[in-house]
Amino acid sequence: MLNLKNVIKSYDNKKVLNDLSLSIEKGEIVSVLGSSGSGKTTLLNCLLGIVDLDGGEIILDNKDITNEPIEKRGFNIVFQDYALFPHLSAYRNIVYGWRNNPSVCTQEEVDSLIDLLELREHLDKDIDQLSGGQKQRVALARTLTLKPKVLLLDEPLSALDGVIRESIKETIKTISREFQLTTIIVTHDPEEALTMSDKVLILNKGKIAQFDTPENIIKHPQDEFVKTFILNQLYIKKDNIMKLFGDTHA
């Protein structure tokens, strides 16, 4: 569904993305994981079309979109800070993009999204009256009314904690399954990546260190970097991960 072929991006003669090639199936949830400077944000910007590639191709549904403008790519993003309009109500935020392009979605579909995301009782509230989880749901609803082919999420849980964090995790998984929506999540949190995703892309200095299922990454890290990066960071949360994937002998 989405193919990256030999993608290269450099800044100041330094390769930030170095010959990336991978395939993502329709409806898959893929997390992009890596330390600061690994190329996560650059990859996100390249997918969106905010920056141009220096080499390689981006193929979506067998169509080369490498040089397509942002508005024609079929991608949409929910930013880390939600990027909601503070002077508009929750409902007016949700329908903001749809009102400019009403043919893409029916009123019934908008209402269905509102109910799916449990926002009905919050529609008349100002944005500053909403909790972090409610803001995240409003941002998701606004994006989904435009029916993207690929949903991009930039650190979707970073501002959340506790029960709200787990609730949004489940919401994202439900949306992906319900709409067969290919979802790419950029995160710095290994636990988040491993517990939300069908596959995890681990970047190291602009190269693919491993692209695999969470279970394989936990049980069969491809090299010492993956083992150290993932398992060391997960050690304090080890009990949670072991419940999902069993004993890794880490």
Rank of each mutant, 00 (worst) to 15 (best):
T195L: 15
Q180Y: 09
K173T: 12
I77M: 07
K63V: 14
R137M: 07
H188L: 07
T213E: 13
C105R: 05
G97V: 07
N67C: 13
F245M: 05
N45K: 10
E192W: 06
S31M: 09
L151G: 07
N76G: 10
E71V: 12
K5M: 02
E25W: 01
T41C: 04
R99H: 13
R92Q: 15
M1N: 13
K199Y: 03
I29T: 00
H122R: 10
R177T: 14
L17S: 05
S103M: 11
K147V: 00
I58S: 00
V95E: 07
R165S: 02
I184Y: 00
Q180T: 13
V138I: 11
D64W: 12
L33R: 02
K149D: 07
Q129H: 10
L130H: 07
K125L: 08
L194S: 00
N232V: 13
H249Q: 13
G39P: 03
P221K: 10
S197H: 07
N6E: 14
Q129E: 15
F85W: 13
E118I: 14
D64S: 12
K125P: 04
L60Q: 09
I236R: 14
I175M: 09
G133D: 02
N67Y: 14
L47Y: 03
D154L: 06
I184P: 06
G246Q: 01
E118C: 11
E28V: 00
L33S: 01
N6G: 13
K149Y: 05
Q129F: 03
N67G: 15
V163S: 14
A83C: 12
I168M: 12
W98Y: 13
K125E: 01
T106G: 07
E155R: 08
I50A: 13
N67M: 14
E28P: 00
G206C: 04
L17Q: 04
S10I: 01
N240G: 05
L153T: 07
K125G: 04
Y91V: 05
T174W: 10
L84D: 00
L20C: 05
